[in-house]
């Protein structure tokens, strides 16, 4: 007599099939591409790790990777504190609550390419609202010719588009703090800094973790906005990783190299996200 049977595998099967088609098979296809040189479906050569070696020593990719890290760092450094400040200054009750929630949700509803187009127009130095205003004030601003201006414009665009997400997440975190905590702090005569440091920030930790990871992953994969604004220019000032990847895969049809690149790209995101997660949760036991 068998002490157990294997029927339970049938319960796992649907999930397994789903994951296979949504993740494992596409992923392994990419792995397969990345070790071959492909000219057409019938002409392909096994090249081993050649693509990887080539990618890791490609200065064009190094530049774009550094640019990408600086960009994501700036996005987090601006959006996270700004989002917290916005959330802290939002009303806690009354008519102001729905009004501010709707206002904050609006930018999140705008598609990426529309955001790019909006800022492309707003930033124009001849007719754009901000562009012409800045130039009128004597600031030499032109995103189409100055790499610095283009870079800053892409950053502002992202801040405009996504700070609300951080603010909304933080607001929901703040709302979950019971009123008695604030009351107890008042009775203890705690300063507003102490309230933030010892009550609000600890309670925000989990939503901040989600906000940081979402914003990091998303900004690390930015594609549409700079593509719409300047097409990655001027020069390569706003050419970030995903645009480099697209050029490689579709522009040059360099599938093997692009696949190797994709995998490295994926591993970088995985690694950095893991570092963030570990860093922010390592002292969870102390609350």
């Amino acid at each position: 007599m068998k002490p157990y049977n294997n029927k339970a595998w049938w319960l796992v099967l649907p999930v397994f099939v789903l994951v296979a088609f949504s993740a494992i098979i596409p992923m392994m296809t990419v792995v397969n591409y990345s070790v071959q040189d492909i000219f057409d479906p019938s002409t392909r050569y096994f090249v081993g790790t050649e693509w990887y070696r080539e990618i890791l020593s490609d200065p064009r990719l190094h530049d774009s990777l550094v640019r990408q890290f600086i960009y994501s760092f700036c996005v987090l450094a601006i959006e996270i504190p700004l989002g917290i400040i916005v959330a802290l200054s939002m009303p806690r009750r009354g008519l102001g609550v729905p009004v501010s929630l709707i206002l904050l949700a609006l930018p999140l509803l705008v598609p990426w390419n529309v955001v790019g187009t909006i800022w492309q127009i707003i930033g124009r130095e001849d007719i754009g609202l901000y562009g012409s205003l800045l130039n009128g004030l004597g600031v030499d601003y032109n995103y189409a010719s100055s790499p610095r201006d283009a870079w800053i414009t892409v950053l502002i665009m992202d801040v405009w588009h996504w700070t609300s997400l951080v603010a909304l997440l933080c607001y929901s975190g703040l709302r979950s703090i019971p009123d008695v905590y604030y009351q107890a702090a008042r009775i203890d005569r705690a300063s507003s800094w102490a309230v933030f440091r010892y009550i609000q920030l600890p309670k925000l930790k989990n939503v901040l973790l989600i906000a940081v990871m979402l914003r990091f992953m998303d900004s690390f994969m930015i594609y549409t906005e700079p593509f719409v604004l300047t097409g990655g220019g001027p020069g390569t000032a706003t050419t970030f990783l995903s645009q480099t990847l697209t050029q490689m895969a579709l522009g040059q049809f360099d599938l093997g190299r692009a696949a190797a690149f994709s995998l490295i790209y994926f591993l970088i995101i995985l690694l950095v996200t893991w570092v963030f997660y570990t860093a922010m949760t390592h002292n969870d036991d102390k609350g």
Binding site: P178, V180, Y181, A184, I187, Y198, I199, P202, K203, G287
Partner: peptide, 12 residues
């Protein structure tokens, strides 16, 4: 000073 029904302490 006041003590509440909920256990109110600074978590960190």
């Amino acid at each position: 000073s006041m003590v509440y029904q909920q256990f109110i302490n600074y978590p960190t």
